[in-house]
Each structure stands twice: as structure tokens, then as C-alpha cells.
Design a protein around this nucleic acid. Structure first.
Lengths: 250, 250
DNA sequence: AAGCAGAGTGTACGTTGTACACGGCACTAG
DNA sequence: CTAGTGCCGTGTACAACGTACACTCTGCTT
């Protein structure tokens, strides 16, 4: 019965104090559990986030956590929304500054909590903090007279790009934290690989390599963000905006 | 000793026939294991990809797989590169058509094998197929006289965007396949959520909702790709290209 | 005929999420 | 003051995971 309550996460996120009739009595609390879980995930990634590990850092037994959180899945929902609540909302326009602010806020959130990008976003219960931030991002471009579906598309494009670069960065950071081995050491250990990068097989890559293109790379986030915003500017300032409707489901 | 061979994956991917001195004798083979694993992951995602499950679909015992593949991690490396080998390379310029082709190829690869985006890319051994495709993508923009680090940045920007949208799509598809519950049904089960979306709390979102912005959404991939390419065009055709160097590590 | 290498099997272990039954505490009703 | 009624934290137990390790069986080489 309790297991089948599909709206449990909804209430957990959106009505935080509904079921708290008295002040917390025990030493443990939902907030403490969530906080400890975030700390573990920050330090070692989602892979190291186990109920036993969280309990251990709190000095309680594993099962004590289940008094405050229905299960691991709901704990993740709470962690995600707690993180969305850490930063301030996107201010209203001018649109380009607003979108850039939105992008940089997410970027720094992903840097601080790289495990966010290890999680599926599909079917995760959105919490009030995440939704409020999303709403503010929409508001940043509301002055442009875009069609509602265009507002969504513009903000989403920025979000998808930041998630894309973010994922790469997050995976790198977490791999380093989790294993304790630096990126450089790891690749140096696999020295046999580079012998296979021959000019016949990979002409462009060896050319880029020998001309130093990999030694002084451009900042992926800064470069890409500027391009994406430029592209959106082209769209926004164009007279008749092309409409690209979704043809198929999914 | 065997455990500590950091170059095992390198040889596995880049010298596939080095250790095969005779023709395969047994009924099982590395290729058959990889193929079966891809089929399982396609159907139910990485979460369902277990050694037991793969062996089961092949009609062998779990441990028989270890005769042909050193471990699960290396099996994943082989699966990834096998998938990169399924599609053709990006043809050489004109640059915009080439980048668009590259983006669409990755997009369809992600559609066919959504589990690709559930995997970390960090510290995954690159295989010959992936690297050849990457090289071809670089070649597509080689005519523009870009600096080597700019070539990398341009191609990477497209890749990051496609990975971003792709992840969202992949997670949705896989959630549906894994659980057998459609996206719509899942959200309908959580009906209490929508009551919390009030105009006071989320003015823009409710406005977009009531004006139908969510009912006829634009295609995220098509819309975003056009914007990203537009943005790159602005960069490419600008006289003095701004250089954005990476300031800090990671 | 001897023996060896490689394919496939079976058992066993440590780690995961969590169901379930239990003990101790604090408050409230009589 | 005593009995009762929940909540807090504990302990044990189980199924599923990757895989180490010790086998059996087969077929080729000498």
C-alpha cells in the first residue's frame, strides 16, 4: 500500500511540513540525511552513495535512515531539489544577459555537485526549487514576444548545451575524486594507446596533435556558450522565425 | 598481474587479432558476446545489462563469458566501439553540411543505442572506430583555415549539444523500455503534482501551459542544432575570431 | 599413448537496497 | 502513578550483482 503511493515524492517535495505535526524529536532528521548524502555524493559521486555509507557518516545504522526518507530514490529527489535551492534565480532580461546568467548558474551548480549529471532526469519528480528556477529562466526571455513554444525551445537549447559540456566535466572530476588517480596519470598508464595514432589512420588528429592543438585547448564552456547565444540571437532578431515542429513522438 | 595490465583494453580494441593464433574453436566468441550484450542494452538499458543476463540470452553460463572478455568494463569498451563502427564517416566539407551530417549521425546512433549516453565517457578507452569518426569530423572543417584548437572547439561544441539533447531523449526511451510504462501514464499517476503549479508560484510556466506552449513543442534537436550551427557560422565568418583560452584546469 | 591447453561449468564471497520484526523511549489518558 | 500508544533507531535476512577460483571435458600436439 505505502509502496504503491505514486504521489509520495510529490508530497515529500512540495509539502515538506505537511506531515510534521510536532517538532522533530530524534537526533536524526530528513534535512540531516539529505545533507549528509549530498556531502558523500559531492566527494565521491553517485557510485559511492550507498545507504550504508550515508548512515555511517552520520553515526547511525543503515536502517535508521528509512525513518526519515522512504527510500533511496526519494532521497535522490530531495538531494536534487536541495541543490537547486542553493543558488539565486535568473533575473529578468535583457534576454542575452539573462540566458548567460542562467547558463553560468547551472554550470557552477554542476561544478559544485557533479553527481547531478550522473543521474537520469527522466521521470525524476521536479521539486519547487528546480521549477522556480526554470520559471525565472523563462521570464528572462519573456520580453521578446516569442511564441510560448519558442520560449521553451530557447531556454531548453541553452540547458541542453550546458548539460552536455557539464556531463563531460562532471565525469572527469568524479573519476578523479572516486579513484584518487589524476586524469594525466590514468592516461599515462595506458601508454600503448598512442602508438596506434598514426598519420595514415588518423591524419587530422595527428596533425592537430603535432601543431599543439591539444596543448592549449579553448575553454569548451566559454566557447560553446558564446556560439549558442550567437545562434539564438540570429534566430531572435530574424524577421520571420522558422518554426520547427516536432514530427514524431519521442 | 593480469589484473594490473592497464593496457589490456588498448590491445583488445586496437589489436583485435593479435592474440588469436588459431581460428576460434568454441561455439562462443568475443563477437557473439558483444553482439548479445548490445542487444540486451538496446532493449532494456545499461541497468539490465548484467553478465548473467547476457549469458542467458546466449544459452551459456555466466562464467563462460569470461573466456572471451576480461570483464564487464572491457565488454562495455568493446560494445561502444562496435556501435561507432556501424555508421559511415562524415564526408569532407562544405563545413556546415559536414557538421550537420556529423550531428545527425550521432543523433541516430544515440536513438538506436540510447544506453551509450548512460555511460561515462571519462576514462573510457577510445577505439579505432570512434577515433576514425572523430578524425573525419575534424576533416569536415579543415578547409576553413581555423587554428587547430579552434577545429577541436567547433566540433566539440556540436558534439556536446547533441550529447545534451541525446541524453534527455535516451533517458526517456530507456525508462519506457525498462519499465514498460509510457511517459504519459507515469506522469498521470503523479496527478497531485500539477496542483502545485499555481500562477503565483510559477507565473511563466502556467502562462506557457495555458497558452498551449507545451502541447505543440518544437523539436529540441532540430531547433537547437540549427541555432548552434548558426552560432558557429557567426564565428567562422567573423574577421578576427575571439580566442577563449581555458584558464584553469578541469 | 601421454599430456597439455583452452572451453565451459559450478560454487562461493562481498556488496548493494530494503523488508520485517524488535527494543527502548517519550508522551498522554485513566 | 500506571498503562498504553506510537515513533526512533537496531539487527537480521534476502535476492541480485561482478567475479575469483577450482573443477570437467574435449581435441590437438608430440
Amino acid at each position: 500500500m505505502k509502496q504503491d503511493d505514486r504521489n509520495r515524492s510529490v508530497r515529500l517535495l512540495w509539502e515538506p511540513d505537511a506531515q510534521v505535526t510536532r517538532e522533530p524529536k530524534g537526533a536524526l532528521s530528513r534535512a540531516r540525511v539529505v545533507e549528509a548524502a549530498i556531502k558523500v555524493a559531492d566527494a565521491e559521486g553517485i557510485g559511492a552513495l550507498t545507504m550504508r555509507r550515508v548512515a555511517e557518516t552520520l553515526g547511525f545504522t543503515t536502517m535508521s535512515l528509512y525513518r526519515h526518507v522512504p527510500g533511496k530514490s526519494e532521497l535522490l529527489d530531495l538531494m536534487v531539489d536541495a541543490v537547486w535551492g542553493e543558488t539565486e534565480h535568473t533575473p529578468r532580461g535583457p534576454w542575452r544577459a539573462g540566458l548567460e546568467f542562467y547558463a553560468r548558474q547551472m554550470w557552477s551548480m554542476y561544478r559544485a555537485h557533479p553527481w547531478l549529471l550522473q543521474l537520469t532526469n527522466a521521470r525524476r519528480m521536479p521539486g519547487p526549487n528546480a521549477m522556480t528556477r526554470q520559471d525565472a529562466a523563462f521570464a528572462a526571455v519573456s520580453e521578446l514576444g516569442l511564441k510560448p513554444e519558442e520560449i521553451v525551445a530557447v531556454v531548453t537549447t541553452v540547458g541542453q548545451f550546458v548539460a552536455g559540456v557539464g556531463r563531460t566535466m562532471a565525469d572527469r572530476i568524479l573519476a578523479e575524486r572516486e579513484t584518487g588517480v589524476s586524469e594525466e596519470d590514468w592516461w599515462n598508464d595506458r601508454d600503448e594507446l598512442w602508438g596506434h595514432f598514426t598519420p595514415e589512420r588518423l591524419p587530422m588528429m595527428t596533425h592537430i596533435w603535432t601543431t599543439g592543438g591539444y596543448e592549449r585547448p579553448l575553454d569548451e564552456f566559454e566557447f560553446g556558450l558564446a556560439r549558442v547565444l550567437d545562434g539564438l540571437e540570429v534566430f531572435i532578431s530574424s524577421e520571420d522565425r522558422p518554426l520547427v515542429r516536432r514530427k514524431t513522438c519521442l
